[in-house]
Each structure stands twice: as structure tokens, then as C-alpha cells.
Amino acid sequence: MAGKPKSNFELILNGLFNENPIFRLALSMCPAVGISTTLMNGFLLGLAVLFVQVASSCTISLLKNYIHPKIRIPTYTLVIATWVTVIDLSLSAFFPTAYKAMGIFIRLIVTFSIILMRLEVFAAKNPLIPSFWDGIGMGLGFMFGMMTLGFIRELLGAGALFGHQVLPVKPLLFFILPVAGFFCVGFMMAVYNYVEFLFKKAKEKKMRG
């Protein structure tokens, strides 16, 4: 965390691209593989994670002076678990059908390492406002990753978006299978790597030319 403090906008961009939780940091892969079969699932889980991330980042950054460093990890987990229970009960009340489709994944947000890691790395060392924006950035990054995967898989697998048929055919039925999540994430990571590679090349050319 050396260097000058980043602006709010930079913090959000950081979460979306440079440190995208799914494709760059490779954290919280379980939901990315397991339930990104449709755009709606990706969106809802992303929303839940965004909420939990922001809420627990704020809580921890407010409480950071009162937490004994030796038991900080259990404390963080308990804070996360509390917020997860809140979002779990709310979602089951307001979106019962989607909640059923996601099974126990909402409750498993507790163990998504991205949240714990952001608390440890960022919220525990920074004041409230940057922690808030960092939480927003990471949450949006996660949501972006989930929705990209959901978009690809729903479009290719079922020829639909948000449950509405948009393509006349189902191009690759394979992608609707849960296993395809592994392949999809793998390919997306390769794409991210390739884009980064291109950027590097362009930069080198500029330097030379």
C-alpha cells in the first residue's frame, strides 16, 4: 500500500480491471464457475457480494482500532457472516425464485476470499471513505466478472439474455452445463492475459518509436 493515495475513481477502476477479483486476482472462483449460467444469477449474486463487501469494509474500517490483531481474522469472518445473513434473509424475501436457483451460494459468500482479503489488505489500514470506494470497486469488479460470464454462457448455451430468447438457435449447448464454467473462466483469463500482452507490446513500440 505504498505510494500516494488513489482517488475514488481510480479505486473503482482498479477493482474493475487492474485487480478484477475473478480474472486477475483469481479469487472467489466458486460462484464464477458454479452459478454464472445465466445473466440474472450473475447480476443478483454480484449485487449481494457488492452489498456485503461495502458493508463489511465500512464496518471494519470503523472498528479497526478496537480489534486485537491476533484475532482479527475470526472477527472479520464474523462481521462478514452477519452481513451475509442480512442479505440472505432479504433476498429470500424479495426474490424467492432466483434465491432458490442460487441454492446455498448466497450463504457461502461468507467464505469468498475476495471479501476477507480486501478487509485484510485495504479496510484494516484505511479510513472509512477510501474503504467504501474500494468496496464499491471490488464489488463492481466481481459483478462485472460474473455478468460477463453469465452473458457468454447464457448467450452461447441457451441463445437467451435475462431469460428472453434473442438468438434463433442455441449455438453451443455445452456452455449451459455447470462444468463449462471451468472452461469459460479459463478462456476469459486467457483473453485478459492476451489483452495485457497487446498493451505491453503497444507501449514498447511507443517507447521505441
Binding site: 462444468v179 464454467g181 473462466v185 483469463m189
Partner: peptide, 23 residues
């Protein structure tokens, strides 16, 4: 392994193959 697939990317695809086998 192709350069952009190196590391986690190819690991994921391997895991996918394992997943297919476990099906």
C-alpha cells in the same frame, strides 16, 4: 502451453476436463 494460457488459465481448463470425467 500458449503464452496467454499459461498459469491459472490452463489450470482451469484442466479442472474442466476433470469435471467432465467426474460427471
Amino acid at each position: 502451453v500458449p503464452p496467454s494460457y499459461q498459469g491459472l488459465s490452463i489450470a482451469f481448463i484442466t479442472a474442466g476436463l476433470f469435471g467432465l470425467a467426474f460427471m
